[in-house]
Design a protein around this nucleic acid. Structure first.
Lengths: 229, 229
DNA sequence: TGATGGTTGATCGTCAGCAATCGCGAGGGG
DNA sequence: CCCCTCGCGATTGCTGACGATCAACCATCA
C-alpha cells in the first residue's frame, strides 16, 4: 500500500476556518482599520452560525487584529505609532532569543535552509522584485524561530509578525534601504550558522532597532490623526 | 448628595467570569494536571450555559492552562520539564525588555513603589513567611512590567507568569535560596532606579537563568513520568 | 438649546436539539 | 491468547431561534 497522507490531518474546526477567512480579509487590507464587523453579516457571508463567528472573532481579538467593544461592536484594530513601537520592541526581544537558540541548536540541514532563503532574498532584491522581498524577509525570520524549537516563542512570534504585517499594510510603511536589509540578514544568518549565540542575539536586536528608527522617521513624515492610547 | 461609584466598573462579560472561576480552580491545584473538564458539568456548577463555558475554555486554552482535544475532551494542561524551560527562557526575554524600559522610563513614584515592595519582600524572607514571599516576588516583577508601559508586553508577561505559577503548583518547585533571591531582586531594582538599562536587562536575564538552573536540578532529583513533547 | 423618552439595531447569553466524532468494550476470527 | 472490527454510549461541534441588555440615534417638548 502506498503511503497516504491523512485526509483529516488538515480538517479543521469550523471556527478556525472562519477565523482564517476573516484574518485573510483583514491582512489583505480589504477591511479598513477601525472598520466595523457585524456578527450577522459575517455569519451570512461565511455561511456559519453567529456562535461560530463569535468564537472566530474572539480568537482574532486574542491575536490583536480585532477589538471587542463590550455589548456594542467588533472592529478591526487601529494602527498607531505607539503600536508600531510596541511591536518592534517586542519583536526584537523575541527574535533575540530565537537567534540565540538557533545559533546554539541549529544543525546542518537548518543551516542549508537558511542559506538558501538568504540567497532567495538577495536575488529578489537584485531583481527589484520588492513585493517578494517582504515575503521572503518574513519567511527568513520564521525559519530562525522554527530552528529555535520553542513552541511558545513560535506562537507569540507568529502573532507579533501578523500584527507587523497588518501594520505595514495599513500604515504604508515598507523598508527602503534594501542593500542594508540584505547585509543585516546575511550577518545575522552568518552568526547563527557559525554558532555565535551572543552575536546572533545582538544582530537580531539591532536589526529590529534599525527598523523601529526607520518607522519613527516615517511616522514623522506622514503624521496621521490617530488617537493616543 | 454623596458621590457615587460607577456600577459597571466591575461588570464583566459572563464568559470572562466563568473563565476566572475555572482559572482559579486550576491555579490553586484543585483540578489535577491532565484532569478532564466536562462542558456539561462545568455549566451546571457555574450555572451558565454550555456556550458560555465553551467560550471560557477557549480563552483558557489561549492562555495555556487548558488544552482542547478536538471532538474528544478538554483537559488541564500537563507540566513537563520542556514547558518549564520554555517558560523561563521566554520570561527572561520579556523581563529583560521590561527591566530595560523601566530603567529608561521610571519616575520617582515608580521608584518609591519598587523600593516599598522590595522592603516587603525582605521582611517576608526575614520572618520566614515563605508563602507570602512567592506572591510578593510575582508582584515585584509585575510592577516592573507596568512601569515599562508596554501593553503587549504586559499581556504576554501576564500569561507567562500565570503558567509559571501553574507549573510551580503542579511540579512542587519553589525557590530555596531565599537570601540569594533577595539579593538578586535588590540588585535588579537598584539598576532600574539608577536608570541603568543595560545593567537592568542583564540582571533580569541572569535572575531567570539562575531559576532555570535550579529547576533543572529539581527535575533531575524528582524525575516524573512525563511525556516528552 | 437641551434634557427626556422612545425606537432601532446590535451584541450577549440561553436553550433545545441534531450531527460529528471518539473511546471503549463486546464479539468474532485466527 | 491475541488482534481486529463493529457498534454503542458519551461528549463535543454547530445551529437557529429567542429574550435580555446595551448603545446610538431621533423626535418631542419645555
Amino acid at each position: 500500500m502506498a503511503k497516504l497522507t491523512s485526509l483529516k490531518s488538515e480538517k479543521r474546526l469550523l471556527d478556525r476556518q472562519a477565523a482564517d477567512g476573516i484574518r485573510t480579509h483583514i491582512l489583505e487590507g480589504i477591511l479598513p482599520a477601525g472598520g466595523r464587523l457585524l456578527e450577522t453579516q459575517l455569519s451570512e457571508e461565511l455561511e456559519v452560525s453567529r456562535g461560530t463567528v463569535r468564537a472566530a472573532l474572539a480568537q482574532l481579538a486574542r491575536e490583536g487584529l480585532v477589538q471587542q467593544v463590550a455589548f456594542t461592536r467588533w472592529q478591526v484594530s487601529e494602527t498607531s505609532p505607539r503600536d508600531a513601537w510596541e511591536l518592534y520592541t517586542l519583536r526584537a526581544a523575541l527574535e533575540g532569543l530565537a537567534a540565540r537558540l538557533a545559533a546554539e541548536n541549529g544543525v546542518a540541514a537548518d543551516h542549508k535552509r537558511l542559506k538558501s532563503t538568504v540567497a532567495e532574498l538577495t536575488r529578489a532584491v537584485k531583481d527589484k522584485r520588492f513585493g517578494d522581498v517582504t515575503d521572503i524577509d518574513f519567511r527568513l525570520h520564521q525559519e530562525i524561530v522554527e530552528i529555535a524549537k520553542h513552541r511558545r516563542l513560535a506562537e507569540q512570534h507568529g502573532y507579533i509578525m501578523q500584527q507587523v504585517r497588518f501594520h505595514m499594510v495599513h500604515s504604508g510603511f515598507f523598508p527602503k534601504d534594501y542593500a542594508a536589509l540584505v547585509d543585516e540578514h546575511a550577518a545575522l544568518i552568518g552568526a547563527v550558522i557559525e554558532r555565535q549565540p551572543d552575536l546572533a542575539e545582538a544582530l537580531a536586536k539591532s536589526h529590529n532597532e534599525a527598523e523601529v528608527k526607520l518607522l519613527a522617521a516615517h511616522t514623522e513624515e506622514n503624521p496621521r490623526a490617530e488617537t493616543a492610547s
